[in-house]
């Protein structure tokens, strides 16, 4: 029994380690698979820190366990004293100096990686896109005044410079595969960048921004140059639907049947563009509830597109008997 125990422990450890490695790619032991150079370089820094901290962790916990086992009382009386060691100056110096060296290495490596993380490649001519965080949606403005809601279209492999702003409360832009977070702070303009491989990448607002914080998701779609150009010219055709899905439906439900906000499917305001515009731009506060000025920064085109969309697809389309809630 005694002899079997160590081999059993070893087997369990090996199994755990194997399982750990097997799941490391997607089990949450490292940040998600990077798809942009800045995220790649953050990953490098992560691995370096992980290497040192894991070694220190194993050292500290092993020492603790070994001492606990080795110096346990084994029935000795409480009055029996251990070795009356008061300290050891050289040891103190060693365990002060070694962490200093390790931390200096980590800091040095961070500075070495920093240019690849913090700034976009110098030669590239970036595409400038404005990311505007709103309660509770992400709005993207493209160079030719095109706009999208919730989904950011970019050409794969192109350097994209993001100007991150907010008109209402602090939000935080984060697409894990495309690099770190950056707060969208009212009154400030922040910049970040990425260069995405082809694919679709999800993220969500990382700073508490109110009641629908959890619904404030974003997707970056890195697609071919043609698909990107196609979006820039065809955005007007879908913006009404995008706004409905990305903004209105969060509170009022997919079909306007109501949810956190009131049921609006049968509300005749949906057919009156000027009334609708007033509420979208200025918000509304009344005894029955309140609505934020979700459309305060929208263009006339967008308001028109939304008005046309809701008139056609939402008005009177919810199941009959849908109740109006508060």
């Amino acid at each position: 029994m005694r002899r079997k125990l160590p081999s059993l422990v070893l087997a369990v450890l090996v199994a755990l380690a194997t399982a750990g490695v097997a799941t490391a790619a997607n089990g949450g032991f490292t940040p998600v698979e990077p798809a942009s150079p800045n995220a790649h370089h953050i990953q490098h820094a992560y691995y370096l820190v992980l290497g040192f901290t894991a070694a220190i962790f194993v050292l500290v916990e092993t020492l603790l366990v070994v001492f606990v086992v080795k110096y346990r009382s084994r029935g000795r009386a409480r009055a029996v004293e251990g070795a009356q060691v008061l300290g050891h100056t050289r040891l103190e110096l060693i365990w002060t100096a070694i962490p200093v060296v390790i931390l200096a290495i980590i800091a040095g490596f961070v500075f070495y990686e920093l240019p690849n993380i913090d700034s976009a490649p110098a030669a590239a001519d970036p595409i400038h896109i404005t990311v505007e965080g709103h309660q509770y949606y992400w709005q993207f403005d493209y160079p030719n005044h095109a706009r999208s809601i919730g989904t950011l279209h970019v050409p794969a492999g192109a350097v994209v410079d993001l100007k991150v702003v907010s008109p209402d409360v602090i939000h935080s832009w984060w697409i894990p595969a495309l690099g770190g977070k950056l707060q969208a702070i009212p009154g400030r303009i922040n910049h970040t960048w990425f260069k995405a491989d082809t694919g679709s990448y999800d993220g969500q607002c990382a700073e508490l921004c109110g009641v629908f914080h959890a619904s404030m998701r974003a997707t970056v779609r890195a697609e071919s140059q043609q698909a990107y150009q196609h979006y820039l010219t065809s955005w007007r055709g879908t913006i009404g639907k995008q706004i409905w899905n990305g903004v209105c439906a969060t509170c009022h439900g997919n079909l306007g049947q109501g949810g956190y906000g009131i049921a609006i499917a049968n509300n005749s305001l949906l057919t009156q563009k000027s009334g609708l515009e007033g509420i979208l731009r200025n918000g509304f506060t009344g005894p029955g509830g309140a609505m934020p000025p979700v459309g305060e920064t929208w263009t006339q085109e967008e308001i028109d597109a939304l008005a046309a969309y809701v008139k056609k697809h939402i008005y009177k389309s919810a199941p009959v008997g849908a109740t109006s809630g508060g």
């Binding site: 940040p31 370089h41 040192f52 901290t53 916990e61 913090d118 990382a206």
Partner: peptide, 28 residues
């Protein structure tokens, strides 16, 4: 003893947060 074991873990995960580019990933 558990304090030492657990606080070590909390202290070491703090190193990731001090290295600010890594913090950009894991913050919040």
């Amino acid at each position: 003893l558990a304090f030492i074991a657990l606080f070590t873990m909390g202290g070491l995960s703090g190193i990731f947060l001090a290295a600010f580019p890594v913090d950009w990933q894991v913050n919040d």
